[in-house]
Measured scan of single mutants.
Amino acid sequence: MDVFMKGLSKAKEGVVAAAEKTKQGVAEAAGKTKEGVLYVGSKTKEGVVHGVATVAEKTKEQVTNVGGAVVTGVTAVAQKTVEGAGSIAAATGFVKKDQLGKNEEGAPQEGILEDMPVDPDNEAYEMPSEEGYQDYEPEA
């Protein structure tokens, strides 16, 4: 019985440690998101679009440190934060509304985080759909 109880105690310690790591990862992701939003706020009209992409990228980098179902929630929060940063930029006159959601080359930025393969159960990952990809044929 002692062996059984000791095993359960060790398992509990492992769960607590994993929860603490997840909590730490979420806190880091939130900190990076805040950094990115402050970065966007300090940019001029020309830099705002690039700044919004930076927020998304920093958040995406930190999301990889967070495991399990938390990833889905962090990704949703990050996307809403990026959308909010863009709205703030438009409201303050840093950028025109028609410039939001495009990178410096004018290509749409939507789907940055949505296409990231995420499995809350950590069982399997699927690649994003290939609808947006084109076949590449090298020139002879």
Rank of each mutant, 00 (worst) to 15 (best):
N65V: 11
F4D: 00
T64S: 06
A107D: 08
F4L: 05
A11Q: 00
E28I: 06
G67W: 08
V66W: 13
V66K: 04
S87W: 01
E137C: 10
K58F: 02
E61Q: 15
A27W: 11
T75K: 08
E110Y: 10
G36E: 06
E105P: 11
G31A: 09
E83R: 11
P117S: 08
T33W: 15
G7I: 04
V70Y: 06
T81K: 05
K45W: 14
V63Q: 02
A85C: 07
N122K: 05
G36S: 15
T72P: 01
V52K: 01
G51S: 12
V70I: 15
A90F: 09
A76R: 05
E139Y: 00
E83S: 09
E28T: 05
K12Q: 01
E126C: 14
I88S: 07
A140H: 07
K45L: 13
A91M: 12
V71H: 03
T22P: 04
T54V: 14
M116Q: 13
E83C: 01
P128D: 06
V55E: 00
N65S: 01
E105R: 06
G41K: 11
E61I: 08
M127C: 03
M127D: 00
L8W: 14
M116E: 02
K21A: 11
N122Q: 15
A91P: 08
Y39V: 06
G101P: 00
G51M: 02
K96G: 02
G14K: 10
G86H: 13
V71K: 10
K96F: 13
E137K: 03
D119Q: 13
K23V: 09
T75A: 08
T75L: 14
G41D: 00
L113V: 03
A56D: 01
G86T: 04
S42A: 14
N103E: 06
Y136D: 02
Y136H: 06
T92V: 08
V82D: 05
V3L: 07
K21T: 05
A29R: 07
K60N: 06
A91G: 11
S42C: 10
V37K: 01
K10H: 11
N122R: 09
E13R: 02
T33L: 06
D121T: 06
K23W: 14
P138T: 09
A27T: 09
G25I: 11
Y125A: 07
G31Y: 08
G132E: 09
E57P: 04
Q109V: 05
K34E: 14
G41V: 06
P138E: 08
V26R: 00
S87R: 07
M1A: 03
G14E: 05
T22L: 13
A17V: 03
S42G: 09
V71I: 00
S87K: 05
T64Q: 03
V70F: 07
D2Y: 12
T72F: 00
Q134P: 08
G106Q: 15
L100M: 05
G106E: 09
G106Y: 13
E137P: 09
E61A: 07
V66A: 07
L38R: 13
P138F: 09
E114D: 09
P128G: 06
V71M: 03
V82F: 04
G31D: 00
V63A: 06
T22M: 14
Y136P: 10
G47W: 07
M1S: 00
A56C: 15
N65D: 04
K60W: 07
V48A: 05
A17T: 01
K21Y: 12
T64H: 04
V26D: 00
A91R: 01
N103D: 12
Q62V: 12
G41E: 02
G84M: 08
V52Y: 14
M1H: 00
K23N: 04
K97C: 11
Q99V: 13
F4T: 00
G93V: 09
E104L: 14
Y39S: 03
K23T: 06
A53H: 01
N65Y: 04
Y133F: 14
D98P: 11
E46G: 04
Y133N: 13
P120V: 04
A85I: 15
M116S: 15
A27I: 12
E123L: 14
E130P: 09
V48D: 01
E139R: 05
V82I: 11
K97S: 09
K102R: 01
K96P: 15
V15A: 02
Q62W: 05
A29H: 05
N122I: 05
Q134W: 10
T72C: 04
A107Q: 11
Y136E: 13
K58Q: 05
G51A: 04
F4Q: 00
A27E: 01
F94K: 00
A124I: 04
D121E: 08
V16S: 05
G93P: 06
D135T: 11
G31S: 14
G86N: 09
A11D: 00
S87D: 07
A30M: 14
T33S: 05
E131L: 05
E28D: 09
E61C: 09
A56N: 07
K21L: 14
A78D: 00
E83D: 05
V66L: 08
G106S: 10
K80N: 15
N65H: 08
D2I: 12
A140E: 12
D98Q: 10
K43G: 02
V74W: 09
Q134T: 10
D121A: 06
I88G: 02
P120K: 07
E114C: 13
A29L: 09
A30N: 00
Q99A: 11
A85N: 04
D115T: 11
D115P: 12
G25N: 12
K102T: 07
V118N: 08
K102S: 14
E126Q: 14
V16G: 06
E139N: 08
K21N: 03
G67S: 12
Y39G: 02
S87T: 00
E105H: 13
V74Y: 03
E131D: 09
T92N: 05
S9K: 14
G68Y: 10
K32L: 15
G36V: 12
T22S: 09
T33H: 05
M127Q: 07
G47E: 03
D2T: 04
K96Y: 15
K10N: 06
A17Y: 11
V77S: 02
Q109N: 10
S42R: 09
P138S: 01
L38Q: 03
T44K: 01
A17H: 02
A140M: 07
Y133H: 02
P128F: 10
V15Y: 14
T92F: 10
G73A: 04
G68D: 00
D119L: 03
E83I: 05
F94W: 10
L100S: 08
